[in-house]
């Protein structure tokens, strides 16, 4: 146990000092991307946990990104209020559309959010005077916290890490409260939960709002980190990426979303020269996980740490019993 906590502490320190450890802008950039997409993957985890896969989350992230970009560029709003607004816009979209969209279940919800998300992306493309069309918006100011501009990537890294950690803790907290139990109940047997007096739609809307806020925040960070936004970054494929991160890591725990992001986000950056092989690898690994490890990395860790030890213990007991008989 002490060995494990020492390892955990070391890992934690390594994650925090990563940019200073590698001292390489490229690897630091990968780290920033990882934590940025961790936020989106976590927001997707909330949706998956209640059994409603949203393909609009890429577009909601995009709304956050465009909000931050437009507020800072056109209205000279300082970073922090603009950044918070990007989250609020995500939450607002969820609050407005949720009461109607969340009545739809299963595949129909997936297709509904798919269509809704694509409409938003088409709006980015078509409304050129506001959103800049295919070219998007360039020259977004960098993040600035309390008069300190995050010009250095290392500081962007720490900011992204902090946000991801906060999102992770919020998810852990939600899942540990009664709300978490209700979400799981809604996923497992909604009729039963409703017969016990649970306001199913109300809980779903609440979770959707939190999830939309997180996706918007991820977008707000995106805008200020890359300093540009284009519509192509926010199609349903971005939501699919967040979904795949959850599947590879495992949907059962928020940690799965984090693991998935750490596994997946570096891939396109590291294999930049051979994009086709990168996509192929992405597809094959997804097929492999779906077919052989449907519970993701978290599932593997769980089965290793509980089942095998139990079966080892069982085997040990059997040997003891056999000896006594002899």
């Amino acid at each position: 146990m002490t060995m494990r906590s020492v390892l955990l502490a070391l890992g934690f320190v390594a994650i925090v000092v990563w940019p200073f450890l590698v001292d390489n802008t490229f690897y630091t950039h990968i780290g920033v991307s990882v934590w940025m997409f961790t936020i989106l993957a976590l927001s997707m985890n909330l949706m998956l946990r209640m059994g409603q896969l949203s393909l609009a989350h890429g577009a909601i992230m995009g709304l956050g990104a465009y909000t931050a970009a437009l507020l800072m560029l056109r209205l000279d709003v300082p970073f922090l209020p603009a950044f918070i607004c990007s989250g609020l816009v995500g939450a607002l979209v969820a609050a407005i559309t949720g009461p109607v969209m969340l009545r739809v279940k299963g595949v129909y919800f997936v297709l509904l959010t798919f269509a809704f998300g694509e409409i938003i992306v088409l709006m980015f493309i078509d409304w050129v005077s506001l959103f800049g069309g295919h070219n998007g918006i360039f020259g977004v100011p960098r993040a600035e916290l309390f008069g300190f501009v995050l010009r250095d990537r290392s500081y962007s890294y720490l900011f992204a890490l902090g946000l991801a950690a906060l999102a992770y803790l919020i998810l852990r907290w939600i899942y540990s409260t009664e709300t978490g139990a209700v979400i799981d109940a809604l996923h497992d047997d909604e009729d039963l939960a409703r017969s016990l007096g649970v306001n199913a739609l109300g809980y779903r809307i609440g979770i959707f709002i939190v999830s939309g806020f997180m996706a918007g925040i991820a977008g707000g960070f995106y805008a200020s980190y890359f300093t540009f936004v284009t519509p192509e970054s926010f199609t349903f494929w971005t939501a699919v990426d967040a979904l795949v991160m959850n599947i590879l890591g495992g949907i059962a725990l928020p940690l799965g979303a984090v693991i998935g992001a750490v596994m997946l986000v570096p891939l396109p950056e590291l294999l930049r020269d051979s994009q086709e092989y990168q996509i192929l690898f992405y597809g094959l690994i997804l097929i492999f996980f779906l077919k052989f490890l449907p519970d993701g990395v978290v599932g593997v860790i769980k089965s290793l740490s509980t089942d095998s030890s139990r079966s080892l213990g069982k085997r040990f007991m059997k040997i003891l019993a056999w000896r006594q008989v002899k």
């Binding site: 597809g283 997804l286 097929i287 779906l290």
Partner: peptide
């Protein structure tokens, strides 16, 4: 429905690549 849809997505990605 959900899992088969994700599997179809994986097939789509692989075939494109």
């Amino acid at each position: 429905e959900l899992n088969s849809m994700i599997m179809a997505l994986a097939v789509a990605i692989t075939l494109q690549a």
